[in-house]
Amino acid sequence: MKEAKENELRSLQLEFFGRILAGFTHDLKNHLAIIKESNGLITDLIDMGRITDEALALKLQRITTSIQGRVGQATDMANNLNGFAHRQDTPFSTFQVNDLLAEELTFLRRFSRLREIDLKIELREGLPAIHNNPSMVQYVVFKLYTMALKRLQNHSLLEIISGEQNGGVQITFALSGDKEDFAKLIDDETMGMIQEALDTLQARVAILSEASDEKQVIGLFIPSLAKD
């Protein structure tokens, strides 16, 4: 009973967090839209020859190009953050796992970059859309990703690959590096943290490699659940 109440409270907190984040990213995108249009207007004036001083036009062109690039990157980040926040809106929905991964990995990349771990991502085309809990999938991916980073030493390689598996989707995490790190590939602490989520998703995690293999591979299989 106590656990059910705690879960309900946690769910309400997540919903609150999602709403705040969604509102924040919406406002952020409005600011970016204004910067983009203002920058675009300066570009228009240069392109249409309204700025007659050539040296000034060239200087402004360099500046506007730089602003345009940064606004583009910031917009991608804001879009992904907004999508991430809206994941809480509908607990169960039909979605493309590749979209979820692309969105989440935008933020996770920096963790591997800080550790100088080479992160390779292969999102295979033509995966079926699945019906499940998208924010829960992102949570499990996050836990497996952070666990993989803990296992790897600096300058190692982590590959994340999505593929179809029995009508569902399998995400594999392939770790290349010092074998001693893989004595126990999936630790009890991580499994303890994700087990409840795996049960909700009816998903499973399995080790797909032999101890002697060059790479150690973890597979996360996520089925498509029946719609209510």
Binding site: N30, A33, I34, E37, S38, G40, L41, D44
Partner: peptide, 11 residues
């Protein structure tokens, strides 16, 4: 967003 609308109109 007044600035957005005005700038877009100008473009």
């Amino acid at each position: 967003e007044v600035e957005f609308a005005a700038t877009l109109a100008e473009r």
